[in-house]
Write a protein that binds this DNA or RNA. Structure first.
Length: 359
DNA sequence: CCCATTTGACCATC
DNA sequence: GATGGTCAAATGGG
């Protein structure tokens, strides 16, 4: 099955996240701008602002964090991972998935496990809307396990990239429903995708195979990315967690989830513009050049297409640190237009130095 | 028949 | 020893 392997562009998570955030912000800005001009939906406009701030905040925090700590944790976002090799290695002999970790690497003697790129995201989706469309981060995942976690009310689901076998992609993610707010799911990603997946697929588009895992665009979900560190040793959870709100068919035994029985856990919602969406005047086409540059072409973020009913969440996207984006002075028009400019070329060299997306 | 999910067991780490 | 993470056989759906 070769599902979606379309063109050959692979997205590196960190960058993708940033793009996602910026794209989302851009989309919201557009809407806001529209609202301002038309003097309509004042309420909506108010709701949009915090959303926009959130996206910027996420992007900035991620970037800042990496810079300040360059060399440390952040840099560990590398895939230096460990984990296993393509498990294919039949453990028949000696099933020890982790054992390889020691053998292969020459990494410095870190007593702890090897560092694996990790980041967590929190995504919340309105129940109503969320139910309809699973989150999708543009990647296809396959569930390989579920486990009850001590202290957690709900079990944790383990997913890995479906291309693991075919492309050796080691990307994985863990999905756990929030104890406090059952409508939120924390998604922890590990390792970057090294596989080539459909570039234009966007989160809701059935990028995969026959669309088994995903369906239509997911609209309402909130994505909160806490791109923190990739260091496991110290902060077990520091990583990216995505909170996914009640998903349609998440099969958590303990909870009666009225929807479909099998929830292929959605991947994170990283909107990758789809071809269709491109047709809408605004779509962003991201591409990465060999020299670490990001080229963004006009467009808009997909996920918001249509009704993007982003739940005006209650706080999921609050940034407590109160960093001020000073967006108040922002000239929205300018900003949005900048995004729309025909080939916004962003230089992400700095990213390169801070995040090691080595493959 | 093929593929994804479920689930119990195994293994490594803490 | 307890807990988390992964594997793989079993099961179910398309």
């Amino acid at each position: 099955m070769e599902e979606k392997k379309t063109t050959g562009m692979s997205y590196l998570d960190p960058k993708l996240f940033i793009l996602n955030e910026l794209a989302q912000a851009k989309e919201l800005l557009r809407r806001l701008e529209t609202n301002l001009h038309t003097a309509t939906s004042t309420n909506e406009s108010k709701l949009l602002i915090p959303q926009i701030l959130s996206y910027f905040e996420n992007s900035l925090s991620m970037l800042n964090g990496s810079k300040s700590e360059s060399g440390n944790d952040q840099s560990q976002i590398t895939a230096s991972e460990t984990d296993s090799t393509p498990t294919d290695s039949p453990r028949s002999v000696n099933r020890s998935p982790r054992s390889d970790s020691e053998s292969d690497l020459m990494e410095p003697p870190s007593k702890k496990r090897k560092t694996v790129a990790r980041w967590t995201e929190q995504v919340r989706v309105c129940e109503e809307t969320g139910l309809e469309g699973p989150l999708d981060d543009g990647y296809s995942w396959r569930k390989y396990g579920q486990k009850d976690i001590l202290g957690a009310a709900y079990p944790r689901g383990y997913y890995r990239c479906t291309h693991r076998a075919t492309q050796g992609c080691l990307a994985r993610k863990q999905v756990q429903r929030s104890d406090e707010d059952s409508s939120i799911f924390n998604v922890t990603y590990r390792d970057r995708h090294t596989c080539v997946q459909a570039p234009h697929l966007l989160p809701g588009q059935s990028q995969n195979k026959d669309g088994q895992e995903h369906q239509k665009p997911t609209k309402s979900q909130e994505t909160i990315i806490n791109f923190q560190t990739g260091c496991l040793g110290e902060t077990p959870d520091s990583g990216a967690t995505k909170v996914v709100p009640r998903s349609p068919s998440f099969s958590f035994p303990s909870i009666p989830v009225p929807r479909s029985p099998s929830f292929s856990f959605p991947s994170a919602s990283i909107p990758i513009p789809s071809d269709e969406q491109k047709e809408n005047n605004d779509n962003i086409f991201y591409s990465m050049t060999p020299d670490n540059h990001f080229v963004a072409s006009p467009f808009s973020s997909p996920s918001t297409s249509g009704s993007n009913s982003v739940c005006s969440n209650n706080g999921v996207n609050n940034f407590e640190d109160g960093q001020d984006l000073q967006t108040s002075d922002y000239d929205l028009s300018e900003f949005t237009s900048a995004f729309d400019s025909p080939d916004l070329y962003l230089d992400f060299d700095f990213l390169d130095s801070n995040f090691r997306f080595d493959m």
